[in-house]
């Protein structure tokens, strides 16, 4: 059991309105194997019940607990406290989004970007009845590294271009577009390309690679964006 100080961002819209929020310190003992989410749960259940944060599956598949820990975006449930290497742990809400309360941010703008790129399979030809469409393992492999996204928001929140341009689709939505673009079953490129071929779309990315560093699932959104550009280049030439 090691002593840690958690410096947690707090913002209660009913009390702190108009302020930029405050930082509250919690000194707690952390057991071996605890993740940052375990520590937050401990604080909520034993120290201060008013602390608000999202959480659900606590094993890195639901994407609820995206936050900024010691300045780095990740999901709290996968971040071992001991691996942080500091005795003082700063926990902040994801940047680039409006804070609703404490560590909870408004993800609506993030989801809106996804809706904009038509995040679903578009197929005009009828599928075979009572059978699957065939897809070779090689074609299926193209989806690897794109379909695993859990929508935690860590990438878009870490993107300086998104901070500057709130209309930028962001790495997440663009990677989703790439996921469908490379799917051998999808026929929606023409429809989808309008949304991403925009000054707030695929061309806005400055290949800063923050999203790659931030992704807790180790996906490479920048590469997906580059792939999209390549596809569009091919389409034009």
């Amino acid at each position: 059991m090691a002593e840690y100080i958690f410096r947690v961002f707090r913002y209660d819209p009913e009390k702190d309105e108009g302020t930029r929020g405050r930082v509250q310190e919690y000194k707690i003992g952390v057991e071996r194997g605890w993740t940052v989410l375990d520590a937050l749960n401990y604080i909520k259940w034993h120290v201060d019940g008013s602390l608000a944060y999202r959480r659900a599956c606590r094993h890195g598949i639901c994407g609820s607990c995206g936050m900024t820990i010691n300045g780095k975006n990740t999901i709290a449930c996968e971040q071992q406290v001991a691996d942080l290497g500091t005795q003082v742990v700063t926990v902040e809400p994801l940047r680039g989004f409006r804070v609703i309360k404490d560590l909870i941010v408004d993800m609506e703008p993030f989801y809106d970007k996804l809706y904009a790129i038509k995040p679903y399979l578009i197929a005009y030809s009828d599928p075979p009845t009572d059978k699957e469409r065939l897809q070779s393992p090689e074609d299926r492999k193209l989806l690897d590294g794109k379909y695993e996204c859990i929508l935690c928001g860590c990438c878009t929140s870490s993107c300086p271009t998104y901070w500057a341009d709130k209309e930028f689709l962001g790495p997440n939505a663009l990677m989703k577009a790439a996921r469908f673009a490379v799917d051998s079953r999808d026929e929606g490129w023409e429809e989808r390309v309008n949304a991403i071929d925009d000054k707030h779309g695929v061309w806005r990315c400055h290949t800063i690679f923050n999203c790659v560093e931030a992704c807790p699932k180790e996906l490479n959104a920048t590469r997906a964006i580059v792939e999209l550009r390549r596809l569009m280049l091919k389409g034009r030439l």
């Binding site: 679903y120 009572d130 299926r140």
Partner: peptide, 21 residues
């Protein structure tokens, strides 16, 4: 089986056999 095929038609990225099933 019908539900699985419907899922596939919706776009679920199932792993595939060498024949593509």
């Amino acid at each position: 089986p019908l539900v699985i095929f419907e899922y596939e038609h919706m776009g679920v990225p199932f792993s595939r056999t060498p024949e593509g099933k």
